[in-house]
């Protein structure tokens, strides 16, 4: 059986392999970038408002901070309660050009002990969970010089 690959949220990321990117939007009037994307209004209070166009975010950034989840999060996080809980790592990444911090899960297998504030990471495609019909895809942060 082939599951349909579907992004967990539409239009937050796109591309395959090397071309994978998070997608934000940029205001045509003031240049402000938004992630998660704003498609209806610019949130800069000093901006009269412009068109919001899709823009890929920087592929690489540096770890702002990190943590992990030792206990199963509640729904709507998808996990099989029959299976033993496998902790995963969460990373907050500072993107230099955008001057913003974006959260994400680390690629599976990366533990907090392998990270430090300032570690260079890049965004890669990942799988959040699978159900009967669907492979839900997401973004992951991956250390550049690591695994």
């Amino acid at each position: 059986m082939t599951r349909q690959r579907t992004p967990v949220v539409a239009d937050w990321f796109s591309g395959e392999g090397e071309n994978f990117r998070l997608l934000g939007t940029r205001c045509s009037a003031c240049g402000s970038v938004f992630f998660p994307r704003e498609d209806s209004y610019c949130r800069n209070p000093g901006c009269a408002g412009g068109e919001l166009a899709e823009v890929p975010l920087s592929k690489r950034g540096r770890v702002w901070s990190y943590t992990d989840g030792r206990y199963r999060p509640p729904a709507p996080y998808a996990s099989d309660p029959e299976q033993e809980w496998e902790p995963y790592t969460l990373v907050a990444v500072e993107l230099e050009a955008e001057r913003m911090v974006v959260l994400g899960q680390a690629v599976p297998g990366v533990t907090p002990g392998q990270l430090a504030v300032g570690t260079e990471v890049e965004v890669v495609p990942g799988v959040l969970n699978e159900d009967a019909d669907t492979t839900w895809t997401t973004w992951h942060w991956k250390p550049v010089n690591g695994r």
């Binding site: 949220v9 999060p73 509640p74 969460l90 959260l103 504030v117 997401t138």
Partner: peptide, 28 residues
Amino acid sequence: DPDWLRFRVLGATNPAYFGLYARRRMAV
């Protein structure tokens, strides 16, 4: 709803944010 999204997409509980702030303070 950003509150729904952080759980659905990241499983980011409140303690996860507290962990991020704590680790940041340790480093900085």
